[in-house]
Amino acid sequence: MNSSQFPASTELDARVTRFGLRVAAGLTERSAALPQDVSERLRFAREQALARAAQARAAASPALATDAAGAVHNGSTLALKGGPRGSGNGGNGALWAKLASALPLILLLAGLMLMREGQDNEQIAAAAEVDTALLSDSLPPAAFSDPGFAEFLRDGEE
């Protein structure tokens, strides 16, 4: 890979920052032309967003944040945790979660096996019908060696 194709991460961060500053400046310029009620609602929403962001930063450690579903977010990685600590399940929660995630695969494999078993039974039944038709008729032995005789029997049944 050619390293000149992709900018360094510091250069990319600088570009993103410059873009954000340009967008913010454009929004600030156009906010003077907004009606009073719209600008008041935007101010209130901005204050709420800043308060929520401050609460989220205060509640989460700098490197690791856990949400209510038990997922661990570390950068862009998402992993599932067992249960809450101290819940007294002794690690059984992680075992049950793994078994529950494997259940669809197990059901799929069982369904495929049942379908194959049914197809095998249909083939056996069709061969048994041909054998029964051959053995119950009074035919000369030369008819059994004829390659088109089994096809003749199948056509006669239809």
Rank of each mutant, 00 (worst) to 15 (best):
Q5G: 01
T28V: 12
P141V: 05
A100D: 07
E129A: 12
R41K: 15
D137T: 03
L27I: 04
F6V: 14
V130T: 10
Q5C: 05
E40G: 02
E117T: 09
G111N: 09
A68K: 13
F44Y: 03
A142D: 11
E129F: 02
G118S: 15
G111F: 01
A8L: 13
N121V: 04
G86C: 09
L95P: 01
S39R: 15
V16D: 08
D37V: 12
G83Q: 06
G20A: 09
A63R: 05
W96R: 09
T10H: 03
N121E: 14
D13A: 15
L107W: 01
H73T: 09
A45Q: 03
W96F: 05
G118Y: 05
L42C: 02
R18C: 03
T66D: 02
L95S: 06
A126F: 06
T132M: 13
A56I: 05
A56C: 03
L112V: 04
L114S: 15
V130R: 01
G91S: 11
N92K: 05
L99F: 00
T17Y: 13
L134D: 00
F19P: 00
I106A: 10
R30H: 12
A45I: 01
Q36K: 00
L114I: 15
Q48M: 03
G91H: 12
D37Y: 10
A59L: 08
G75D: 06
G86L: 08
S138K: 10
A133P: 00
Q48S: 12
S76E: 14
N92R: 09
S61G: 15
A25F: 06
I106K: 05
L42G: 04
N92A: 15
A8Q: 11
G83M: 01
A100I: 01
L105W: 02
Q5N: 10
L107T: 14
R43A: 15
S4K: 03
G93L: 05
